[in-house]
Structures are given as structure tokens and as C-alpha cells.
Design a protein around this nucleic acid. Structure first.
Lengths: 195, 195
DNA sequence: ACAGAATAACTATCCCCATAGTCAATGGAT
DNA sequence: ATCCATTGACTATGGGGATAGTTATTCTGT
């Protein structure tokens, strides 16, 4: 149901076509919940069938159309319901930490590579998350701009603050991951320099 | 393939039946890669078919048997291969941070509940991870004890250190999550005390 | 002697998601 | 005029995992 929630979240800011929604997943919600377009198109259809969104056909080319989806009142209610519902925290699944737990089975230089990749991955993500946070704070991000236009000025502070807050969580976690991997590189040096 | 790696990792310490493997998932590898028994039994079968493990029938009751799985040389090779292979870091999927990003849509008291649950969840996990780390360090955990018996004393330091290191990563992340949620509670207080 | 908990080994089903395509229209460059 | 990148909208297939069963055996306490 999280994909659905992500789509509803996007549609509370502005109506979107499937393609546009898929693009937003690369820039906004996608930072916390990613999904390929092959998942998005059928999900929007299902949501339309259930009355959460309205699909409006708009012309596209001379003999073709595309569908633009508008959130309905039922859709907003469903989103609010999801927002009010506590998440259930499923079991962890973390291949990187699993692999690290058995580093004695791997070649030392490979383990260093793994950790360097870990650092590189989170460094890259940190750049994106920090940039995204900035774009939220200065309202330059597309979705947030549309959202702020739709809602009264007195709500703007909260809207922006919560999104920045979410990114801050990602950033804190990413920093923790990178720091951990850096400590790992030191650990490997101390354990694997046989002499 | 990570489930398979987790099973191979367990079996490098000692032979196990499907049931025993499932139990181990609750205490050892399960902290980084959880799986229900309904996934474990068929996976062990598949691994047997591929020659990664040997399934030995042992009597169970008067007219029944159970299968105990022993890792084969091919299995160890497969595990080493996995250990040498860099992971690919898929897209993020984090419902808690997604929900936090849209807190303005929820009731303020509910958002506090969500964050309190977040803290409670990670507090509980932190307890388990810290305890598990201690049991690794003092060799009291079942799987680590079996593993240390199987491998020469000069390797013990590394075996223990890497597992402790993995848990330290989980702990650091858990602490970051709890701290983030605590900051969130403060943020809500500052935003939602309208006056 | 018996109950109930724990041990043991499965199966079935559905959903989510990943991967990898197909087919069509548009806009800009050469 | 046509080529190509981009926009746009899909479909097909398979695997992994969640949930929820079923059936049988052994052990422990009373």
C-alpha cells in the first residue's frame, strides 16, 4: 500500500499523468519510495477503479490520448487514513551488513572495495538528499512549488518543515552508514596487516 | 540470492535442519536478513538440487525422517563467490520517512504516536543488537561458538571482530533513527502548538 | 496417563516488485 | 525532409517474500 500512498501524496500537490508521476519518483517521493513506471501505470488504473483518482483523457497527438489523474475526495480521505495509520515495522533485510558480518570469508582487498562502494553509494545519496532538502527549503522544487500554491500560506511552514525533516533523517542515516564503512576500512587495516 | 547467502553463512558454522535454520534466523543472521520457514525449506531443497548442500536423512520418530543439511565444497565456493561480489544498491523504500514527509496531512497526536513507535521499535532493536553483539564478543552465542570450534584459533579474532562490526553498524543506524524521531517530536511541538 | 508446548516439515496463495520489453508521438537538429 | 532523443503509455513474465495454513512427533509437567 505504500506505492499507493506515494502516488496519492504526489497527487495532493497536482494532477499528473502516469509518465509525470514516474518522473516525480526520480526526484521527490522517489527519494523515500521508489517505483518503476511498470508499477505506476497499473496502480493508477486500480486506484481509478476504486475511485481514489479520476482519470481524464487528454489528447496526445492527432489520434491518441493520454490520461491525467486527479485525486478525488475519496483519494484524499484514503491518503489521510494512511497518514493516520501506524506503520508496521517489518523484519530487517540488509545485505550490506550481512556481508560485512562474514568478511573473514572474502579477500581483504574485496572487502575494502565493498566498503568503499558503500561509502560511495551513501556519499552520492547524501549529495542528492542534501540538494533535495535545499530545494524544499527554498521552494524551488517542482512538486513543492505546486503544493504551496494549492495550500494557504499559514500552512506553508509546516509543509516545508516536515519534508525537510524527512530528508534530515535520510541524511543522518546516510552519514551513519558512511561513518560505519570508514571505521570498517580501519578495522580491516588493523586485522589484515599480518606481520 | 541473499537468502541463499544467509543460509550458506549459517551452514559454514554447523550443519542444520530446516527447522534449526529457521530458528537461527530469529537469533543470528536474522538480525540482518530475516526469512520465514516457508521460504527456508524450499530454498534448502533448491540448494540441494544444485549441489550446494548435502541433505542427509536422519530418523525422526518411529516412521518419519528429517533432513539435516551439510554445506558442500561447491556450497562454500558459492558463498565465497557471493562474499567477493559487490552488492548492488537498489532504490530506497522507506515508509517511515515517507510518512514523516507528509505529517501535515495527519492529526498532530497521531504523528507523535508514529514517532514514538519509531523510537520504541528502534529501542527494542537496539537492545537486541547490543545483546547480540555482547554474545558475539564473549562467544556465548550458539552459532559463533560452533563456528569458532571449526576454525583455527588464529582466525577467531577476525571472525568475532567482523560480526561485532556488523552489529555496530546496525546500532549506529538505530541510534540515528531514534535520535531523528526525537527531534521530530520537538519539531511537532514547535509547529503544532498554535496560539 | 495425559495435556499442552515445542519441535519438525511442509504447502498454497497472493502480492509486490524487477526486468525487459513493445509501440507511438513530439521536438529539435542537420 | 528525415533522423534521433525524448516524451509517453503501456505489457509480459518471473521471482521473492508475506501470510496462513496443515500434519506429525517429542518432551515436559502434573
Amino acid at each position: 500500500m505504500s506505492l499507493r500512498a506515494a502516488l496519492l501524496a504526489l497527487l495532493t500537490a497536482e494532477p499528473l499523468t502516469g509518465y509525470e508521476a514516474a518522473k516525480r519518483f526520480d526526484s521527490s517521493v522517489g527519494h523515500v519510495w521508489n517505483a518503476p513506471d511498470s508499477q505506476i501505470y497499473p496502480e493508477l488504473r486500480r486506484m481509478e477503479k476504486e475511485g481514489l483518482v479520476d482519470g481524464v483523457q487528454v489528447p496526445w497527438g492527432p489520434n491518441s490520448t493520454k490520461t491525467r489523474y486527479y485525486i478525488t475526495e475519496d483519494g484524499e480521505r484514503a491518503f489521510r487514513d494512511w497518514m493516520d495509520t501506524p506503520l508496521d515495522y517489518g523484519p530487517l533485510r540488509d545485505a550490506a551488513h550481512m556481508q560485512a558480518a562474514y568478511f573473514e570469508w572474502a579477500d581483504a582487498e574485496r572487502t575494502r572495495d565493498h566498503l568503499r562502494r558503500h561509502i560511495a553509494f551513501y556519499s552520492g545519496m547524501l549529495d542528492r538528499w542534501r540538494a533535495a532538502r535545499e530545494e524544499i527549503l527554498d521552494h524551488s522544487q517542482r512538486t513543492i512549488a505546486a503544493r504551496l500554491e494549492k495550500f494557504p500560506p499559514e500552512s506553508h511552514e509546516r509543509i516545508v518543515a516536515y519534508k525537510a525533516f524527512a530528508y534530515e533523517g535520510l541524511i543522518a542515516r546516510g552519514e551513519a552508514e558512511a561513518a560505519w564503512a570508514r571505521r570498517g576500512l580501519e578495522l580491516i587495516d588493523s586485522l589484515e596487516t599480518e606481520d
